[in-house]
Design a protein around this nucleic acid. Sequence first.
DNA 1: GCCGTTTTCGGCCCGACTGTTTTCAGTCG
Length: 574
Amino acid sequence: MKNHEIAKIFNEIAGLLEIKTDNPFRIRAYRRAALNIEGLTRNVEDLSEDELIEVPGVGKDLAAKIAEYIKTGNVAVHEELKKEIPQIVLDLESVPGLGPKTAMLLHEKLQIKSIDELAKLAEEHKLAGLPGIRGKTEESILKGIGMLRRSQERSPLGKVLPIAQDLVDQLRVKAPLTRIDIAGSLRRWKDTIKDIDILAMSDNPKEVMRVFVHLPHVKEVIMQGPTKSSVVIKEGLQVDLRVVAKESYGAALAYFTGSKEHNIRLREMAVKRGLTINEYGIFRVKDNTKLGGEKEEDTYRILDLQYVPPKMREDRGEIEAAIEGKLPKLVTVKDIKGDLHVHSKWSDGSHTFEQLVEASKEHGYSYFALTDHSQGLGVARGLTVERLAEQKREIDTLNKKLKNIRILHGTEVDIRSDGTLDFPDDVLQTLDLVVASIHSGFKQTKEQLTSRIVAAMKNPYVSIIAHPTGRLIGERDAYEVDMDEILKTAKETGTAMEINAYPLRLDLSDIYAKKAKELRIPIVISTDAHVTTQFNFMSYGVSIARRSWLEKEDVANTLEVRQLLKKLKPFHRT
DNA sequence: GCCGTTTTCGGCCCGACTGTTTTCAGTCG
């Protein structure tokens, strides 16, 4: 699938044009096209030129560049720009606070060859004297280099959300505010997060800012103004706090939640109607009358749009759907009737069946699937055939005693390196459902990995493929698989795909989950819980589902157990 | 480079903060 490669090239072109101070709207056009191609659920290679032009932000010119890439493997404009602008300028620009202008200036005037050299020159005060640069700028460049070196990639949602919640709790106690919300990509529950955005309502913003920059978490203050401040916390993340008054809170929350691309679309719509939107409200241009802004819903209502839930605000078609009143009714945590991927003490989990039953009841479930590991997975104390049979007897006995809840007996069967399953069919046949997944041989070729999963899906007893790309956000990249091929086979075989809610996994990701929905493949949301507290991860999985536009009907484990079993393989059971 | 119930050409989202400036450019979100 070349969507990702093309998006990357368009983004690089945008970055290079930025350095050249090219037309900013042209730059934005490349970025917008990149975003939409990345989010496309169809493969660009399968699209005709007419269909390409249908993609928002892609016109005749960019459609031709996409065709060029598919045909030749590169884009001429991109190659020429790369020749014109040396890599070092892009490297310099990656320093926070250092933009295209300064990066180009440093390259042209001082022929700087590396970030290390830049740091050395800044320390020796050899930058001062260049146009617009004096002592403070040298300091801020050094700070920026420090941040660059500390800041790893984006952090997993599951790691950042608790930190943000803690900051909000502290501010609520210590600062004079009447309301506080997490905004930004955290509010959209994006799977990875770059910084934390917080919005507060207060009549005394200065005092709020004073408290904020003195919180114990804070390591460094980047900037501090009366309505907006930014700090770096000990965990290495940047935190932005914005404070506004009650009458602007909704507009500020919308502005600060983003995404930027979503907001730009709204602002463009406003302009066409003689209106303007900023973080203080929505206004009529001719007489500057404020039409709304206290509530987030105001803007959408005034633009004749359905209210767009935060998790859908990515400019991936939600605006068009909202215009037509066709936004999906998104699945919620309350819709989930049971968890279909749960481990117990029998393998590498921590809890007994009884404890898992209790936890399931507390979550309002009417069933859960016990899916301990299979024999080959020694590290996880995988079950032998004999242990699995013994487990079945215990579960049967327990199920007879249980009321209003049922344990489904399953397994998380390992898909072995050669593509065979870790239990024979006559064993799988005894189970209520079978979850299959890969735990080894991640370094195999894309073809090998894909064919292993495809082979598993063709087995009549495999109900669900779990965490199909194997990614561990921030720890291990997704292994190479041909997801189009996998989804195609899922469709053909009726195998369900899992959205694994484990915060480091979130796998399927939002883009592929959306694609699975469009193909009408059964989807389940499961936590992969190894301890009962991890049942709470369900909200992460549901957030991915919501970002993927999934409705209740798209998610199999919103069904009661009888319908669920009819929906999942094997189809012949009663 | 895209796009069109005011346009096929002329628009294109908007504001806060900083540093080096005397009115603004650069950067960020």
